[in-house]
Design a protein around this nucleic acid. Structure first.
Lengths: 258, 258
DNA sequence: AGGCCTTTGTGAACGTGTGCACAAAGGCGA
DNA sequence: TCGCCTTTGTGCACACGTTCACAAAGGCCT
């Protein structure tokens, strides 16, 4: 604060964890703004965003010194500063590729438009979808992908295709100039250096919940499926014991037959 | 390895970061399994899952010693061990509440069923949707929520309602016995101790991409909107300068007028 | 049967993120 | 104008996560 060069000279390097929370704060602040609340304390804002107040203050401190001691933060002002930091004060044209159920849901999702994202085009490989109106615009054939990206200066692509098509679409997007990709397809995408990929996998989240649910329910893992003696296992693959010679019964779960 | 009690006695505490990656490994392994690949090295599996091999090996080591030195991991065996650890060897009935575009996409998503999740019911508050067939089952009215949860022993709920309805639905799910919630609504949910919530916010990911995109494009933030001299600002709220007396021009972005 | 070569499993160093607790700042009331 | 009371901004200690690098293990070839 009086150190001269605080926070590693700032602007360079806001921690990733902080960046990931800024949209949360922004949402909470937008809510307050709509209710015409003029100022918030870190305590209140933290509660609204679902984090603790020390973390919130530290996060905000990376952006600059935007609060007033003894008072709190000016809501409108902070909304603007966070928006600017996130790049939401400019317009981001986006293409959505793949208009199955999920793609259509994304196209209709209001949270994009309200934050500076503009859906420049909807594209799908299925000719039967071409021309169909979704969320107010006609689906275009994926053949036009390169020209659409170039003509609209699109730098962000959203992939909602089946897994099998995702890599090819990615390659074409990247070749056409896209440098950020939001991937909903359940595949690992390979991209050149300098291209950012973020993924959202619906089933991964559910699997993580199942893990914790299992911990809560029983107090251990389900027993390691060991074929009773030598009879055929329940399904073959699932009960297969160690690949070759039984090793040395190391670190096994604990809640077990033996 | 010969330490006696490795990894904090095991079973207690697999790191969260590891748990979050297990589904990734599982997906990669399933792919290998379908191609009848018998074994993989940590190097290969890591590449397929998009992580580095040291991390993969450490992650797997928390589950037990399931590899063979000089050879690698038996694919089928590892699939089974990870499935078991994640709780996917049992059946998890799930309810989806809210069948707008997103809810419908989730109901149709194949990634659930293939991993032990069974959609026990689809529920919506809109009477016009009641009875509509989605993904092979009729939508039921949300009034039946409590009975559906109890009768099916549902412990995981998926919320895909508008933000305004999410908290009420959550409360009802929790009262009925649900202890894990996957929230797609853009709100912070309040739940009692012992209930897990994971959230997926489609627009947050896009905002994070925008942040990095901005860094790549220009080499600084967009200029802080300062009203030119005293005339009316561009839109009022957006250009509002500091709330009260200008403080001391601290830590300002850098790429700026003065 | 022995030695070589591959690959695991993990100690240890390092980096990132979290939370406490408090000094400094600033408004506001007397 | 002065001092009090609230709330920020941050130093510091700790917890968690990542990566390196290598000894131990184990199969396989001669």
């Amino acid at each position: 604060m009086a150190t001269g060069r605080s926070h590693t000279e700032r602007t360079r390097g806001i921690p990733e964890a902080t960046v990931a929370r800024l949209p949360l704060y922004l949402r909470a602040l937008t809510g307050l703004s709509e209710r015409s609340v003029p100022t918030v304390s870190s305590e209140e804002l933290a509660a609204a965003a679902g984090v603790n107040s020390a973390k919130l203050r530290k996060d905000l401190s990376y952006l600059g010194s935007y609060g007033t001691r003894g008072v709190g933060y000016d809501v409108e002002y902070l909304v603007y500063q966070i928006s600017r930091e996130l790049g939401l004060t400019q317009d981001w044209p986006v293409v959505i590729v793949g208009l199955g159920n999920l793609g259509a849901a994304l196209a209709n999702y209001g949270g994009f438009a309200s934050r500076g994202f503009r859906v420049a085009a909807l594209m799908d490989a299925d000719p039967k979808l071409t021309g169909k109106m979704i969320a107010g615009q006609a689906v275009r054939h994926v053949d036009e992908l390169e020209s659409v990206v170039r003509e609209n200066g699109v730098s962000i692509g959203v992939i909602a295709t089946p897994a099998g098509a995702a890599q090819e679409v990615t390659d074409r997007l990247v070749d056409a100039g896209v440098t950020s990709i939001l991937n909903f397809a359940p595949t690992v995408l390979t991209v050149p250096e300098g291209v950012d990929v973020r993924k959202v996998d619906l089933s991964i989240e559910l699997q993580i919940l199942a893990f914790h649910e299992q911990r809560k329910a029983g107090d251990g893992l389900p027993p390691d499926a060991e074929p009773p003696a030598s009879g055929p296992g329940i399904s073959g693959a699932m009960v297969r014991r160690r690949p070759s010679s039984a090793p040395k019964s190391d670190r096994e779960p604990g809640v077990q037959p033996a």
